[in-house]
Structure formats: C-alpha cells, structure tokens
Amino acid sequence: MEELSLHILDVAENSITAGARCVQIAVREDLPSDTLEIEITDDGQGMDAATCRQSLDPFFTSRTVRRVGLGLPMFREAARRAGGELTVTSAPGRGTQVRVIFQHSHIDRQPLGDMQTTLVTLIVGHPEVRFRFRHRKDGHEVALDTADLETAEALSAHDAAGRARWVRNHLRTVYRHL
C-alpha cells in the first residue's frame, strides 16, 4: 500500500465486517511535536486478548472475525519504518481501536494520500454505517459526521451518485481551510 489513506480504508472495511454501526476516523498532524497520529475506533464485535494479539501476526487468519491477515501487520510495518508504532485495543462486545503514530517528518513516512476518495468509498458503499471523520492540523480542523443533521439530510436525499457528489463537494470545500 503506497499511501496511509489506503490503510485507513482497509481498517475501516474490517470494522464494518466486524459489525460496526459507527466508525470514527481521526487524523492529527502536530508539527511542533513532529507526529502524525491516526486513530480508527469502531463499535463492532471486538476481539478477545488472544485474537487481538494474533491480529498483528501476518501468518494468522480467521475467516470469522476478519480483522486479521496482512492488513494490520502491514500498517504496523509502515509505522515502524517511520519511527512509529501501531497498537490495537479491543474487547469482545466493546469494539476495537487501532492507533497508529508516525514521526511526521520521517523520510520513510508514507503520505496520507487521497483521504477524500477513501471517505467517499466508505460513505457511499455503506450508507447504513455512521462515519465520523476528523482531521486536525496545527489548530485547524476538518470534520464530517454522517449523522449530523445537515449531512444526514443531504445524504439521505440522494442515491449513490448523489451521495458521492455531495461528499466530494463537501470535503473539497472544508479542506480548503486546512
């Protein structure tokens, strides 16, 4: 995977497979402390301690839980290559949180990439799931919550084509300030 937004899409798709009704994605860029932090939190079925450990083992796979395989190990490698780390916190029935931190200026840190297409793909592909997205950079913040009154109304009034167009336009507008 050549950009972080693809890893985010991968983790979020796993959250949905794990039965999440709400997926929160937070990106924080803090230049003074030279960190980039990504947090994906879901309210899916969660994992017990053993499965949680195994989810970081590339040679473990379970077709029932699905939050396993190469996804998280590759994301962790991407973090470690850039002076960072990935941690998974989870409990059965309590959802899962994947937290990844990078050295922002590290030469091997992958770019965040096309976050907008990741969000459009998630929101259009899963209209039944609530997505809360926040991207903070040096005191400025971009936010999108599909359950916000205005957003929910705009999204519910459209079919897939209309939703895609609305999310794209909305993100383009809010990202102008970041």
Partner: peptide, 13 residues
C-alpha cells in the same frame, strides 16, 4: 467491489 487488504493494495479503490 471487493475491498480486502489484497484488493485495496492491488487497486480496488
């Protein structure tokens, strides 16, 4: 569109 890790890294997005 299949969006497993394999799909995403191969260009599913």
């Amino acid at each position: 569109v299949h969006m497993g890790t394999c799909g995403i890294s191969a260009g599913a997005r």
